[in-house]
Nucleic acid binder design. Structure first.
Length: 599
RNA sequence: GGCCCCGUAGUGUAGCGGUUUAACACGCCACCCUGUCACGGUGGAGACCGUCGGUUCGAAUCCGAUCGGGGUCGCCA
């Protein structure tokens, strides 16, 4: 070892000891006749002191710069009274250097390593190794490790086995776009990188493993977002002989214990986690991943408005739509300009418009007068009617109603956007609170207007409710799936389902999705066949590890918890990937490149 | 693929048609400084304003294209 101690570990009790340290120059304070260096290693910082009496060492210290790598020999000494530094773990002491060796010099870094400043994303990714040297990023990676360690221990304790599944897979027609890998041995044929180990884990259930998990890397060739990378990591779990209840309870237990272990500073809003069916979540929050740290709950005003002469509402109701809205406490004084901005937000979300009703004053809504109500539709309704609406939304004077009209799909979407916007503007979401919930009973199918067919909302191995098989032909939109999502603070953290384990059921679903018998056999024959050999009932889930880590370190962008992420255009700024390959490599893979005309 | 935002010293920003020799902070370099810890002081270097084209007497500034980054919708079972 090049050192005897880690600098950040040194305490008053080490005083008098001779130590050897190694690390980076975090900062140098040169007083001419005396120099201090904050030496940084994986444990933190320690102040090392260079006195001129130490001739050679002092001279070396004068020429040292930030990020130089040093090895120092010295004696731990208590700091003189009044010069202790409470901000450093080692702040009670300092190391008086007798000898120093420069293990490596350093160019001036392109951005400061010793402070957490905003730096252009591009520059950070280009010099990712320096970006990661910064304390915040190092801590994020360590937290990621702790979480993975916790997960492995947790499942190990419950007799789960971690099994690695193939990265080279058969491409499937459903779901996200695949990353393709050419086969050299089979000219013209391709593997697909896994979008998830879905089929493998089900086959492991058929294999009788009963309890499987994996920290699995997954790949999807789709456009990127702050919470989406082309390659990402899932906690993948599957169990046999279980129902929804078993799995939801396990997820609850897993996350509750994980947070207690690695993120004790967070408050769980409620445990057990509230459960909403999909229709309920859409009705109350307009979203299948509601942020329930705040209320702003959506209410149906249609019954109160039915029979109105106000054309906009009347037409919507007659057309089968509804009028829905929610109350924003204390927003009754929102100035006109901001209300206009909200209407614009609603329009961007697809709404024709947005009705705002601002209640003036304080206290209950009884005795409301025309002067107390500020609304663009004030002349179409009486104060009593507005008071009824307010009561339905749980509003008082001083609150603001936001009301959208239209088909449910539209009003949900609009009100969801507004809910999140108002929570943001009024700081309703506590950053230290984690509000988990489950959303269950998702629809099994959704209509794909582009391709004119039904798609699986979750995935095609998800089991519909047994009693819903009967209506699969006539009312596919009404078929409920045994799928569930784990949601936290408006983020979809994970999801899963009870699977289909009988071949004839799978064929039924495949048929509904418009996959012909021939294609079904070709793409899913192995699953259909496996299910004929006594496949046990089974189910499971997959959680986004990147999102889980981001959530627990308070990052909004999963790039902050991935060591070497890609840019929005899926490039690696450090290595330059992806890049052209040689003709020889292409030939071996039997690939002829046909570029689009614009390139 | 659509729409939106951003590209100005190493970093973060200002400047938004003409006294700009492009400003400020941090960083960097030199000198001074024996108790600092975001050390301090003095001085200095460093940017053809992403690229190409256009408008104009004059462009970092206006327009168009392009490249790169980011956001968002589509997409992501």
């Amino acid at each position: 070892m090049l050192r005897t101690h880690l600098g950040g570990d040194l305490r008053a009790e080490h005083a008098g000891q001779t130590v050897v340290l190694a690390g980076w120059v975090n900062r140098r304070r040169d007083h001419g006749g005396l120099a201090f260096i904050d030496l940084r290693d994986s444990s933190g910082l320690v102040q090392v002191v260079f006195h001129p009496e130490q001739g050679d060492a002092f001279k070396v210290a004068e020429d040292v710069r930030n990020e130089y790598v040093l090895r120092v020999w010295g004696e731990v000494a208590l700091r003189r009274d009044g010069s202790q530094n409470a901000d450093l773990s080692s702040g009670a002491i300092e190391v008086i250097v007798s000898q120093v060796e420069v293990l490596n010099s350093s160019e001036t870094p392109p951005f400061p390593i010793n402070q957490d400043t905003t730096v252009d994303e591009l520059t950070r990714l280009r010099y990712r190794y320096l970006d990661l040297r910064r304390e915040r990023m190092t801590e994020n990676l360590r937290m990621r490790h702790r979480i993975v360690k916790f997960i492995r221990d947790y499942f190990d304790d419950l007799d789960f086995a971690e099994v690695e599944t193939p990265v080279l897979n058969l491409a499937t027609p459903e779901g996200a776009r695949d990353y393709l890998v050419p086969s050299r041995v089979h000219p013209g044929n391709f593997y697909a990188l896994p979008q998830s180990p879905q089929q493998w884990k089900q086959l492991l259930m058929v294999a009788g493993l009963e309890r499987y998990f994996q920290i699995a890397r997954c790949y999807r060739d789709e456009d990127l977002r702050a919470d989406r990378q082309p390659e990402f990591t899932q906690l993948d779990v599957e169990m046999s002989f279980v129902d929804e209840q078993d799995i939801l309870e396990m997820l609850e237990d897993l996350y509750t214990k994980m947070i207690a272990a690695v993120g004790p500073q967070f408050t769980l809003q409620s445990s057990p986690f509230p459960r909403f069916t999909y229709p309920e979540a859409m009705e109350r929050y307009g979203s299948d991943k509601p942020d329930i740290r705040y209320d702003l709950e959506i209410h149906d005003l249609t019954p109160l408005i039915r029979g109105t002469d106000f054309a906009v509402f009347k037409n919507v109701i007659e057309g089968g739509g509804r009028i829905r809205g929610f109350s924003v406490p204390g927003a009754g004084e929102t100035p006109r300009r901001q209300l206009d901005a909200l209407i614009e937000v609603a329009r961007e979300a697809g709404a024709q418009g947005l009705v705002t009703v601002a209640f003036g004053g304080e206290g209950s809504l009884t005795g409301l007068t025309t002067d107390d109500v500020r609304s663009p539709v004030a002349r179409f309704f009486t104060p009593e009617q507005f008071a009824e609406w307010g009561a339905a939304c749980g509003a008082s004077r001083g609150d603001l109603l936001l009301i959208a009209a239209g088909r449910d799909a539209l009003t949900s979407r609009v009100l969801d956007v507004l809910r999140r916007r108002m929570a943001e503007e009024h700081s309703l979401a506590d950053e230290q609170t984690l509000a988990f919930c489950f959303v269950t009973e998702f629809p099994m199918f959704e209509w794909d207007a582009q391709d004119n067919k039904w798609n699986a909302v979750h995935h095609l191995f998800t089991s519909p409710f047994e009693e819903d098989f009967a209506i699969m032909g006539e009312q596919p939109e009404a078929v409920r799936s045994r799928a569930y999502d784990l949601v936290c603070n408006g983020w979809e953290i994970g999801g899963g389902s009870i699977r289909i384990h009988r071949p004839e059921k799978l064929m039924q679903v495949l048929g509904r999705l418009g996959i012909e018998r021939e294609e079904a056999t070709q793409k899913f024959g192995h699953m259909l066949e496996a299910f004929t050999y006594g496949a046990p009932p089974h189910g499971g889930f997959a959680c986004g590890l990147d999102r889980t880590v981001a959530m627990l370190v308070g990052e909004r962008d999963i790039r902050e918890v991935i060591a070497f992420p890609k840019t929005k255009s899926a490039s690696d700024m450090m290595t330059g990937a992806p890049a052209p390959v040689s003709g020889a490599q292409l030939n071996e893979a039997h690939i002829a490149v046909a570029l689009p005309p614009s390139v």
